[in-house]
Design a protein around this nucleic acid. Structure first.
Lengths: 176, 176
DNA sequence: TACTACATTTAGTAATTACTAAACGTAGTA
DNA sequence: TACTACGTTTAGTAATTACTAAATGTAGTA
C-alpha cells in the first residue's frame, strides 16, 4: 500500500510536535514549524491555521516566539497585507539564536542568585558556625565553577557553524 | 545586617528550584537536590521532607528520578532501616548520565519517526507529485543530518570529564 | 506472630500551561 | 469617512503536570 504525501506530512508534524514538547516548548510550536518546514514557499497565517488545526490566536503568539528564536522568518509582499512565514533551514543558525535567547532568561537570574549567595559568604558578613560556612563556601564555589564552564561552552557553541559542529564531535573524541 | 546561614540556604534552594524548572524538571527536584548539596552528610528521606516542605510521597518519587539521573546517591547504614541520600558533587559525571537518560527517551522515538518518514520517501513507494516528493526528501534529509550531528556531539560530550569541558570552550574558540 | 519504623503506591487536588473563541485594533482601500 | 481583511489581545477553558494525603507494602525486631 503506497502512503499518501499528506500522511507523510502529518506523521512528520506529529514527530516534530513531540520533539518540541520534549524540549519544553508547546507542541503547537513544533507543529507550526513542521508545516512551514515542509512548505516550499512562505505561507500566510491563515494557512498555518488550516494546516495545524490551531486557532489564529495561538498561531499568532507562537509564530512570534518562533520568530524571536530565529526558527521562522516573517515577510510581507507589496500590495498584500498578509504576513508570510517560512522556516529557517539553517539549523546551526537557529541553535545559536535559541541559545542566545536562553542566556538572558530566568536561567541567568537564578545563576546570579547563586553568585550573590557566594559573595555574601565570602564577604564574611554571614553569622553562623565557622566550619559550616567554610563547607558551604566550598560547595557553592564548585557549583559556580561548573556554571562558568557551561557558560563559556555555550558562548563557544554560539559562534559555531555547520562545519564547526560536525568537527567538534571528532575533536572531542580525540581529546578523550 | 548579617544574614543568617539558614536564609542563605533558603535563597540557594530557591535558585536551584528555578533552574530546575527552567530545564523542564519539577521545581521540587531542584529543591531536593539543593538541600542534599548543602548537607555535609547523607540525610534520610524524612529530613528532606522537613527541609523542603514537600510530602514523603513527592520526595520518594523525585529522589528516585534524581538517583536514576545520577544526581544523588542512595545509601543505607547497617542496623538502620532508613535510606540516606547525598548529592553527587561531580557535575560532569551527572551531565553524562542525564544525557544518557535523555537519549533513550521520547526524544529518540521522535527522531526515529523522522528517519522512517525519510525511508518511505526514499523507497519510492510514496504516491504523489514528483517535484514535491523531491523537495520533501531534501528537507527531511537536511533535518536528519542535523540530528545526526547533534547526536554524535552528545555522544562525544558523554565521554568528557571536567578537564575536557573546560578545554572544549578554548578549542572551539580556536576553531572559529 | 504481631509490632514498628520506615518507603512506596495510588487516587485525588492544586497549580500551571497550552489553547480557544471572540472582541479589539489597524492599515489599506473605496 | 466607513468598510474590509487581516493580526493581536484578552478572558476564559481544557489539558497537563506537580503535588498531597492516606492507604499499602516491607523488612527488621520483639
Amino acid at each position: 500500500m503506497t502512503p499518501k504525501l499528506s500522511q507523510i506530512k502529518k506523521d512528520f508534524t506529529e514527530s516534530l510536535s513531540q520533539i518540541s514538547r520534549f524540549w519544553g516548548f508547546p507542541k503547537g510550536m513544533g507543529a507550526i514549524f513542521a508545516v512551514l518546514y515542509l512548505s516550499p514557499a512562505p505561507i500566510p497565517l491563515d494557512e498555518i491555521v488550516g494546516l495545524t488545526g490551531l486557532t489564529k490566536g495561538a498561531v499568532s503568539t507562537e509564530v512570534r516566539t518562533l520568530a524571536r528564536m530565529g526558527l521562522v522568518h516573517r515577510s510581507s509582499k507589496l500590495g498584500d497585507r498578509k504576513d508570510y512565514y517560512e522556516a529557517e533551514t539553517d539549523f546551526y543558525t537557529s541553535i545559536r539564536s535559541i541559545l542566545k535567547e536562553r542566556q538572558n532568561s530566568e536561567f541567568d537570574r537564578a545563576l546570579r542568585g547563586v553568585r550573590e549567595t557566594l559573595e555574601k559568604l565570602d564577604s564574611g558578613s554571614v553569622s553562623g558556625d565557622e566550619a559550616e560556612i567554610k563547607f558551604l563556601r566550598e560547595r557553592l564555589k564548585a557549583l559556580q565553577e561548573f556554571f562558568n564552564a557551561i557558560d563559556s561552552l555555550t558562548n563557544a557553541v554560539i559562534k559555531l557553524d555547520k562545519l564547526g559542529i560536525s568537527n567538534v564531535a571528532k575533536i572531542l573524541n580525540v581529546l578523550k
